[in-house]
């Protein structure tokens, strides 16, 4: 499209220089510092830092809570996206824009509210606590707030795909005698699966790195409801930069792997569905 414009349009060198300089100072140098710090540790030191019992418990809970919340988001996100794309009802546009609130609301506010909604005297806790459901300062509480944080990712990933589904596929299924449920299960779900996996991964990645909201709803107890980012902060507060960096590297590798997976998936589904 713009192959010839390099000779015509001005500002290529200037804009590219600004871009590269900015990214180098803000992203590349800090990442290089992280690599240097990690390399300054001996393999034994690195291993001792990332594989303590407390660290393992923190990864386990971080990964477990993030996967559970991302799975819950897939179900809730599909429900909301389906309703928004397929049905007409009063208040639909308001509902559609409300879905973005978790993107716009500062995570500290989300954490603050969620920590007080589910306590015994809270708005929702007064019904749930007598039933034995305690979602304040527990593992469940962390999962619930992660569901809130990640919900828009799945909805926004699914909406455009649901909108662009071909009528003919559902037509054909119906004519061949499939029930609505069979059509949904065997025709629609396979078509939206790549988008669902993208939404799942984005929601998972966000949950893995989340700190602001969890710090309010978790009691920060090691082996119980401490997530990996909390452990990094704890190490930093003890000025143990090496250990903090080692744990951060584990988190970085996980999130980069997810980022690559999402990119590969998007390229793959573009090739297969275009």
């Amino acid at each position: 499209m713009a192959t010839t414009s390099r000779r015509v349009l001005p500002g290529f060198t200037a804009s590219l220089s600004v871009t590269i300089l900015y990214l180098t100072v803000l992203v590349l140098i800090p990442l290089a510092a992280c690599v240097m710090k990690t390399l300054s540790l001996s393999p034994a030191e690195f291993w001792a830092a990332v594989w303590t019992r407390q660290a393992r418990a923190a990864y386990e809970f971080s990964i477990g809570a993030s996967i559970v919340s991302a799975l819950v988001n897939c179900v809730l996100g599909l429900l909301i996206a389906w309703v928004l794309v397929r049905y007409e009802f009063p208040g639909k546009r308001i509902l559609d824009s409300l879905v973005d609130i978790p993107f716009a609301l500062p995570t500290a506010v989300a954490g603050l509210v969620y920590s007080s909604l589910y306590v015994e005297r809270g708005w929702l806790g007064q019904f749930l606590v007598p039933m034995g459901i305690e979602a304040a300062y527990t593992r469940l509480g962390v999962v619930v707030v992660l569901v809130f944080i990640g919900l828009p990712f799945v909805v926004r990933a699914l909406q455009p795909v649901l909108e662009s589904l071909e009528v003919e596929a559902e037509e054909a299924a119906a004519m061949l005698g499939a029930s609505r449920w069979q059509t949904f299960r065997w025709v629609i779900v396979p078509l939206i699966l790549p988008a669902l996996v993208t939404g799942f991964s984005l929601s998972l990645a966000r949950a893995l790195g989340e700190y602001g909201s969890v710090v309010f709803v978790s009691a920060n107890r090691p082996f119980v409801d401490q997530i990996a980012p909390m452990l990094i902060v704890a190490k930093l507060e003890e000025f143990q930069y090496g250990e903090a960096t080692a744990i951060a590297v584990v988190l970085l590798i996980m999130s980069f792997a997810l980022l690559i997976a999402v990119n590969v998936l998007e390229r793959w589904s573009k090739r297969h569905y275009a």
């Binding site: 790195g209 980012p229 999130s255 980069f256």
Partner: peptide
């Protein structure tokens, strides 16, 4: 893709 806590670190 980077956790805010790691960014701070």
């Amino acid at each position: 893709a980077i956790s805010p806590v790691v960014a701070g670190l």
